[in-house]
Nucleic acid binder design. Structure first.
Lengths: 198, 198
DNA sequence: AGGTACGTAACGAGCGTTCGGTATGTAAGG
DNA sequence: CCTTACATACCGAACGCTCGTTACGTACCT
């Protein structure tokens, strides 16, 4: 049996965490193997021991970030429909330091994703998945009478994604102007604007 | 008198255009002086003749892109208020190839801007300027009765910027799913959702 | 013993930048 | 009008550095 067998995947996760740290700090322009190794206090040789190439190392870090994001603790939706949509969107916004770092990494990755067909397709697929998850909440909301009966859930889902991610970008660049309560107020304003009015 | 005096700034613009071309094609990760020189069919020596450093070259290209964007021909607002807001937002969306390239460059620049304090502050200032331009239209719209009387123009401006730029990002990654008419339909849906209802 | 887990050192490529050289033009001197 | 002087415009090669990657050595575990 190889020594410390089960640790191998754990080490790869450690490396990915260091990648996240460097990315959140310096962006993709400053992401070098030496910087990642320095962030871990190890040598670049270790990195190449666990990943065949830099691309694989970055790919694993982004994949793992997505899986961790999907599996992270979420807000309990207090009710179905619009309340659940609100909870899902609040989970996206950069309201805490961890969310800021996560969003920063995704926004930074767009430069690479727009130039690399594979990564670009992955990003597009992520958006499609997000829209269909939100669409479920919007369909429920419509059936509950929280939306106009003629509302188009797919279009509203795309709009909700647009609004939320556009807010993410503004908040990342100007956190002073978009503190937690300002982001929540903007989101609530958007949600009440799409809601059916009495 | 120096020979061909007035041409100097024109050459710097030529270089900046080549920078745009490389950025739209390969992103910041592929932006090298050799790539820019190759796109112009000149040597890297020429680039250093007109710019002291790569950072200055990139800075000039982004500055010039912003000025060109501000001075580009715009849609005639058919009326004041919401119609003017609609025209302004349509001018932002990637509805044609030129707008796609321009937006692609800005989105790509976010990786650099999030890591560089100067560029980040510039991006934040751009957002502030855009919001206040849109706020003017929203104030007019409110005064015209197109919005609820208690509408908050600054908050709505931030929301409109968020919606529009979030849509830009989705459209860049999935142009097949967001053709021109889909983007316009989404925008019109957003605008009618914030409008006062009869 | 032998395979795993590293560290250390080095390689070749590509980067931003520097340097010397050449061509071209204007400006001044005779 | 021709010559000299000098700045500008640009090229091609090269420098020093950093990058991703490779090769090799060593310690440890089984």
């Amino acid at each position: 049996m190889p020594p410390a067998a089960g640790d191998r995947e754990a080490r790869r996760e450690d490396v990915s965490q260091a990648v996240w740290q460097v990315l959140a700090d310096k962006g993709f322009g400053g992401l070098t193997l030496r910087a990642v190794a320095a962030a871990m206090g190890v040598s670049t040789g270790l990195l190449m021991h666990y990943f065949p190439t830099k691309r694989a190392l970055v790919g694993h870090a982004l994949d793992l970030l997505e899986r961790r994001t999907a599996a992270r603790p979420r807000r309990e939706p207090p009710a179905a429909g619009l309340a659940a949509l609100r909870a899902a969107l609040l989970d996206i916004l950069p309201l805490g330091p961890a969310d800021v770092a996560r969003n920063r990494i995704w926004v930074s990755s767009w430069d690479l994703a727009l130039a690399d067909d594979d990564l670009g397709a992955g990003q597009a697929a992520r958006y499609t998945r997000l829209r269909s998850a939100l669409r479920a909440h919007l369909e429920t909301a419509r059936d509950l009478g929280e939306l106009p009966q003629d509302a188009d859930p797919e279009r509203l889902a795309a709009g909700a994604v647009a609004f939320t991610h556009g807010l993410v970008v503004q908040a990342l660049f100007d956190p002073g102007r978009f503190p937690e309560d300002a982001q929540v107020a903007l989101l609530d304003g958007f949600l009440s604007s799409i809601a059916a009015r009495p």
